[in-house]
Simulated assay, not measured.
Amino acid sequence: MDVTRTTDDDHKARWNGTAGNAWVEAQAVLDELMRPFEDLLLEAISPGRGGHVLDVGCGTGGTTVTAARRLGEQGHCVGIDISEPMIAAAEARAARAGVQASFIRADAQDHAFEPATFDAIISRFGVMFFDDPVRAFANLRRAAKSGADLRFIAWRSATENPFMTTAERAAAPLLPNLPTRRPDGPGQFAFADRSKVHHILEESGWTEIAIHPIDVPCTLPERELVGYFTRLGPVGLVLHEADDRTRAQVIETVRAAFEPYVHGEEVRFTGACWLVSARA
Rank of each mutant, 00 (worst) to 15 (best):
residue 251 I to L: 14
residue 45 I to C: 14
residue 209 I to W: 01
residue 189 F to K: 02
residue 119 D to R: 10
residue 26 A to L: 09
residue 83 S to T: 10
residue 44 A to P: 11
residue 62 G to W: 12
residue 258 F to Q: 02
residue 227 G to L: 03
residue 203 E to C: 01
residue 126 G to P: 01
residue 42 L to F: 06
residue 200 I to T: 03
residue 114 E to Q: 14
residue 278 A to C: 03
residue 118 F to Q: 07
residue 122 I to Y: 10
residue 123 S to G: 04
residue 121 I to G: 04
residue 89 A to T: 07
residue 228 Y to A: 01
residue 195 S to I: 10
residue 114 E to W: 07
residue 84 E to L: 11
residue 61 G to W: 04
residue 139 N to M: 11
residue 23 W to C: 08
residue 56 V to T: 04
residue 191 F to D: 15
residue 159 T to V: 08
residue 252 E to Y: 09
residue 73 E to N: 15
residue 88 A to E: 10
residue 146 S to T: 11
residue 186 P to K: 04
residue 130 F to N: 00
residue 3 V to M: 09
residue 193 D to Q: 11
residue 2 D to K: 08
residue 271 G to I: 06
residue 100 Q to M: 13
residue 92 A to W: 15
residue 186 P to I: 02
residue 1 M to L: 15
residue 129 F to W: 02
residue 18 T to L: 13
residue 205 G to N: 02
residue 145 K to L: 09
residue 38 E to Q: 11
residue 158 A to T: 03
residue 136 A to I: 00
residue 66 T to F: 13
residue 174 L to G: 05
residue 35 R to M: 13
residue 169 R to Y: 12
residue 175 L to A: 05
residue 75 G to R: 02
residue 264 G to D: 11
residue 253 T to E: 13
residue 209 I to Q: 00
residue 45 I to A: 08
residue 224 E to W: 06
residue 205 G to H: 01
residue 51 G to V: 02
residue 18 T to I: 09
residue 85 P to F: 13
residue 94 A to K: 01
residue 175 L to K: 04
residue 134 V to F: 07
residue 45 I to Q: 08
residue 78 V to A: 13
residue 67 A to T: 04
residue 267 V to H: 01
residue 51 G to T: 04
residue 35 R to K: 14
residue 101 A to S: 02
residue 186 P to V: 04
residue 187 G to W: 04
residue 189 F to R: 02
residue 264 G to N: 14
residue 6 T to N: 14
residue 81 D to S: 05
residue 179 P to N: 03
residue 55 D to Y: 04
residue 48 G to Q: 05
residue 208 E to H: 02
residue 190 A to I: 03
residue 172 A to N: 06
residue 22 A to M: 10
residue 195 S to Q: 08
residue 172 A to K: 10
residue 201 L to A: 00
residue 118 F to N: 08
